[in-house]
């Protein structure tokens, strides 16, 4: 298993190939549906004017995301009342919901890695080639196990989106993932879908 530290350089990204197991280390953020929609509308397409703390959060996120990683995750967090946050359960959520947004978010912030489950589509695969970046697949449902690799919660933004949808800034140690979409246009998901699709066609004619 290859150990990689965030921020990740373009050279390291280009070395990564589909199927590579990786242990991730460093600071990343969680972000899922509400966050991606908010980023696109407020800062990328600018269809909505920044409100409240939007601009301050944007400035705080930029350095974390440059060369950084977004984790599609809606965690269970303890210590909500005392603000001594701790990740209790933190597996990946289904990534394909961010397909309309992901490539633009990657390019805008120079995000090098997206962690999730289920893989993403052609738009993100192209985004991975252009940024460049990769898609890391975490083990869906392995929530307690993954939470153990979250060593610290450094902060939280947009808690008003709700605990699962907020932007949690976390430090991880040896978070286990597999590269399933690389910066060379390869996608394990595409391959498996095609292969299994052929078997399905055979089965349907039986």
């Amino acid at each position: 298993m290859r150990e990689i530290t965030i921020p990740i350089s373009d050279d390291v990204i280009r070395e990564l190939k589909v199927g590579d197991p990786v242990a991730l280390n460093g600071v990343m953020i969680t972000g899922r549906d509400a966050v991606h929609k908010w980023m696109i509308e407020t800062f990328i397409k600018k269809t909505r004017a920044p409100q409240g703390d939007d601009l301050a959060v944007y400035e705080a996120l930029k350095p974390v995301l440059a060369g950084g990683v977004i984790y599609h995750c809606g965690p269970v967090v303890s210590g909500l009342e005392t603000k001594e946050y701790k990740f209790v359960a933190a597996g990946p959520t289904t990534s394909i919901r961010e397909e309309p947004y992901q490539a633009d978010v990657m390019k805008h912030f120079n995000v090098k890695g997206v962690i999730g489950k289920g893989g993403m589509g052609p738009k993100t695969l192209k985004g991975c080639q252009e940024t460049p970046g990769v898609y890391f697949h975490a083990i869906g449902g392995a929530a307690t196990f993954i939470a153990q690799s979250v060593t610290r919660v450094l902060g939280v933004h947009k808690l008003d989106f709700g605990v699962p949808e907020a932007i949690w800034v976390i430090e991880v140690k040896d978070l286990p993932v597999v590269v399933t979409m690389d910066s060379h246009g390869q996608s394990l998901h595409q391959v498996i879908e095609e292969q299994s699709g052929k078997v399905l066609q055979d089965l349907l004619t039986k």
Partner: peptide
């Protein structure tokens, strides 16, 4: 990768049971 995934899943099952923490965050 398939075997690795299942091994991680089983480690997770054990840990959650021990810690009384959710098997999956969803």
């Amino acid at each position: 990768a398939a075997r690795g995934a299942l091994e991680t899943i089983l480690k997770n099952v054990e840990l959650s049971r021990k810690n009384s923490s959710p098997i999956c965050q969803d």
